[in-house]
Each structure stands twice: as structure tokens, then as C-alpha cells.
Design a protein around this nucleic acid. Structure first.
Length: 263
DNA sequence: TGACTTGTTCAAAT
DNA sequence: GATTTGAACAAGTC
């Protein structure tokens, strides 16, 4: 799933392949993914325009355009980015194609079509308007403690709440809590400041390492719960079986023996 | 065949 | 009123 590290790797692909080229045409195959933008507006804004710079906040990617604001992309559950040189076959299915002056193309693919596309004024105003919390890679310890501490909800739910911190999703939240040794269903308010600090540190290091490894799952295979999302697996620490439970409406995996439940 | 999965939003409940 | 929980969304997998 595209969580922060995946979105960051998409940003790098775009940065490396698609900047400052005039967009000759676009091909929108999934108009229902548009957010407060019409397909006519999208076309009018993008054609003859170009990508000036990229930025990211949590799981949201922004491409500042040479003129008329920024393009916002959200990858939903199955979004991806593919760049094709002139002559290379396009992907079988895609949501949006940017066709550049040199005949290369950038594709935004999304089989489940739950991503979002919009023309926005800029990243900062978009984030502020929607009230998203600071990006995982920018949040300070004190800010995390004051925003998360004292909440009644499960710690996993709080970590995934984009209004608290932007960028952590279901998969990374399980990994962070496994490495911290805290049960995902623990009430946040029941955790001490030391425990929240530990979660904060682990969260930052797990996300940083994944970003560094370009979200490449092979390089991150030592992160036990990232790829092994199943119950009944053998915990690498205590050799007991992993458990699953629905927390905050999302399936969670954990080791009951290594991760203590605080209520 | 149909239950399940995912992130986000919005509505309902506490 | 503020906070928390849950359904809905799309479409593919098992």
C-alpha cells in the first residue's frame, strides 16, 4: 500500500524523469478520481504547462506547475507511478497520462481507482485547510506528545490518524508497534510519556529507513510485520504465534507475548 | 460466490 | 461540543 515511503519514492521518480517538460496532452481515464476539479479544468491547466518542482506531505504528493498552482495526487490503495520513454508500451490500464513534448509519458496508474487528483493552489494551503497533522519526518517529539497523548482511542488508530500525524498507514503502524513492544489496541491515554517517546522514536526511524531504502520491500525484509501480514506466523523474537484483531476498523497483526496491552 | 482488504471522508454515536 | 467509531467507496484476490 502506498504509505509515506512509497509516495516519497513516486516523488523521486517524477523528479528524476518528468520535470520542466512541456505537457502536450493528457489522457484522463478515471474522471471519478477528480477532487473538486473538472476534467476540463484539469486539461486547461495542464496542457502547455510543465512540472516545476515536487513536494510531499504525508501520503499526498504535490507537483508545483510552472503556472496556475499545483497538481495534487493521492494514491489511495493501489496507486502507482510509471514513466515510459518514447516508444515504450503504455501500461495496460491507467488513471491519468501526461504526454510530454519529447514523446515520453508519465502514467498515474490505480487499479482500484481510490486515488485522488486535483488542481490546488499549493501544498501548504491544502494541508492547512484540511487540518492534517505534521508530516512524520517533520514532527517534533513535543508536538507528537501533545497531539497524541491523552487520547482515548487505541494507539494504532492514533498513529494512523492523518490529523495527528500525516504519513502512517495500517502496515507501518503494525511494524512500529511491534518494534516498540506495545499492543496496537492499547489505549493511548494509558501509555506513559516514556512509552510515547519510544513510539515516536521508532516511528521516525522506521519511516526514515524505509524512505532511505526507497520503500523497497526486499531491502526492508527485516521489518517483520511489513510483508508478513498474517496471523499464526512465528514471532522472530519469542517464537510464539502472531495474532490478528480488527482495530479502528482495520486488520492488525501483532505478537500477544511481545506486545503488552495497556488499558 | 462472496467475504475481505485498503485510506479517506462523512455520518452516527458516545 | 468534542471526540471517537463505523460505514461506504472500487475492484481485485483468494
Amino acid at each position: 500500500m502506498p504509505e509515506l515511503p512509497e509516495v516519497e519514492s513516486f516523488r523521486r521518480i517524477i523528479e528524476k524523469t518528468s520535470m520542466k517538460k512541456v505537457i502536450h496532452a493528457i489522457n484522463l481515464q478515471a474522471p471519478n478520481m477528480l477532487l473538486k476539479t473538472t476534467s476540463a479544468q484539469l486539461e486547461k491547466t495542464l496542457i502547455n504547462n510543465s512540472f516545476e518542482s515536487t513536494s510531499r506531505h504525508g501520503k499526498f504528493l504535490f507537483i508545483q506547475l510552472k503556472a496556475n498552482g499545483s497538481l495534487m495526487l493521492h494514491f489511495g490503495l493501489s496507486g502507482d507511478v510509471e514513466f515510459k520513454k518514447p516508444g515504450q508500451d503504455p501500461p495496460e490500464r491507467f488513471a491519468l497520462q501526461f504526454h510530454f513534448e519529447d514523446d515520453s509519458s508519465l502514467f498515474f496508474t490505480d487499479t482500484r481507482k481510490m486515488g485522488k487528483i486535483a488542481i490546488v493552489e499549493g501544498m501548504n494551503s491544502f494541508i492547512e485547510e484540511r487540518g492534517y497533522g505534521p508530516d512524520v519526518l517533520n514532527i517534533k517529539k513535543t508536538e507528537f506528545l501533545s497531539k497524541a497523548g491523552g487520547k482515548k482511542a487505541a494507539i494504532k488508530t492514533v498513529l494512523m490518524d492523518q490529523n495527528v500525524i500525516a504519513g502512517v498507514g495500517n502496515e507501518y503502524s503494525d511494524e512500529i508497534l511491534f518494534e516498540t513492544g506495545i499492543h496496537p489496541a492499547s489505549a493511548t491515554a494509558a501509555l506513559s510519556e516514556e512509552q510515547l517517546t519510544e513510539i515516536y522514536k521508532t516511528m521516525v526511524s522506521v519511516i526514515k529507513e524505509s524512505v532511505k531504502g526507497n520503500a523497497d520491500r526486499e531491502k526492508l525484509s527485516h521489518m517483520f510485520f511489513l510483508d508478513n501480514r498474517k496471523a499464526g506466523l512465528t514471532c522472530p523474537n519469542c517464537k510464539s504465534k502472531t495474532q490478528s484483531q480488527t482495530i479502528g476498523g482495520r486488520s492488525s497483526f501483532f505478537c500477544k507475548k511481545c506486545q503488552k496491552l495497556y488499558k
